[in-house]
């Protein structure tokens, strides 16, 4: 055979192979689609409705809670029929005794607010935040979870209200479990998690600050302004969620201390900034800004200020010994995050 004939033969052969393969493949795709359609139809099959042998009508609750007649069979259905006293309705319809909340480990859920979960800036900020935590307490990577579901940006003052539900729904979808419940010690709520929402939106600092939180709340909001990128700002907010008050204004401290005593039955866990232990005097802020850097960590000569002071850098910030002790009592003592 001539070379041209051989080449033609090879080309025709390849075309033949491709055509036959494609045909077989398309036939297979069609068959699978038909099978899937049949499967879906089977999923939607109508349910036969029958009464039960003991005379309970279909859909009605039986004498023994939580049993309900469903298509001729008595099945536990506590959502409809309720449970005996002091028993909880379980997810599979049965009832069980009230489970004690276990003392679990501690988890930080880092929530992208406005950011896409794979946004480079968001992930970088999350890493900086984690590094700040690692330097403070013996947390490991296992204590941190990036929430892969964006929370919509919004008004900085009310944005934290939906963090809990947002993370609950995402977590429940991914694991089947939700967030842990809160337990109380002498009226103090102890959440075994924190949701740290990191926003991409540079908000009005005079109105919203760099970041904010509520005392003993599980939610922390970190804004998109440049000061929100500092790890010590997140530690400052974390301090609020474990009972530490602001140290950048003596009047703000006094006000917080008052409602802490009224609301939780104990004062701030850190001391008041004074002329001796801080660069503050007995002044009140008259502007929308911090009055002073706050308390020293731990001496004036150290060159460091405590993280519960203002967000300004410089001066350098770290946890002073009192704040460090509060962190240890909370995370190690309450949640077992110990070395």
């Amino acid at each position: 055979m001539r070379r041209g004939q051989i080449t033609l033969f090879i080309i025709l052969g390849l075309v033949f192979v491709i055509i036959v393969s494609l045909t077989l493949y398309l036939i297979d795709v069609q068959q699978r689609e038909q099978e899937n359609a049949a499967l879906s139809a089977l999923d939607r099959a109508p349910i036969l409705k029958d009464d039960c042998e003991d005379g309970t009508k279909n859909g009605q609750c039986g004498k023994d809670r939580p049993l309900q007649c469903r298509n001729g069979v008595m099945k536990p259905m506590c959502s409809d029929c309720g449970c005996p006293t002091n028993e909880l309705c379980n997810v599979d319809g049965t009832c069980k005794g009230r489970a004690e909340q276990a003392k679990s480990n501690f988890t930080f859920y880092i929530l992208p607010v406005g950011y896409a979960p794979d946004d480079r800036e968001f992930l970088l900020r999350a890493e900086v935040l984690k590094a700040g935590m690692f330097a403070t307490m013996p947390f490991t990577d296992e204590n941190f979870v990036i929430v892969e579901n964006t929370y919509p940006d919004g008004d900085c003052l009310t944005i934290t209200r939906g963090f809990d539900r947002h993370v609950q729904e995402w977590l429940q979808k991914q694991t089947g479990h939700g967030l842990s419940g809160v337990r109380f010690e002498d009226g103090i709520p102890l959440y075994s998690y924190r949701i740290i929402g990191i926003s991409e939106q540079p908000q009005d600092e005079a109105r919203c600050g760099c970041a904010h939180s509520l005392m003993y709340s599980p939610n922390v909001f970190v804004g998109g302004s440049s000061c929100g990128f500092s790890p010590h700002v997140v530690l400052h907010e974390l301090g609020h969620t474990i009972g530490l008050c602001d140290e950048y204004d003596t009047c703000v401290y006094d006000e917080t201390n008052k409602y802490m005593s009224q609301g939780f039955g104990h004062p701030c866990l850190n001391g008041k900034p004074t002329a001796d232990n801080s660069d503050c005097t007995d002044i009140c802020c008259s502007k929308d800004a911090a009055c002073c850097d706050g308390r020293f960590a731990d001496k004036k000569t150290d060159g460091f200020f405590n993280i519960m002071g203002s967000g300004d850098v410089p001066p350098s910030r770290r946890l002073n010994s009192q704040t460090q002790a509060v962190f240890w009592v909370y995370f190690c003592g309450k949640f077992g995050v110990c070395p």
């Binding site: 506590c78 209200r161 919203c208 409602y259």
Partner: peptide, 22 residues
Amino acid sequence: VLMDARERMPEMGVTRRLPYFG
């Protein structure tokens, strides 16, 4: 009172997980 914000919240939203008995 939102710590570190300069304004008070106009309202406060909370999420609680209560026991479900039916």
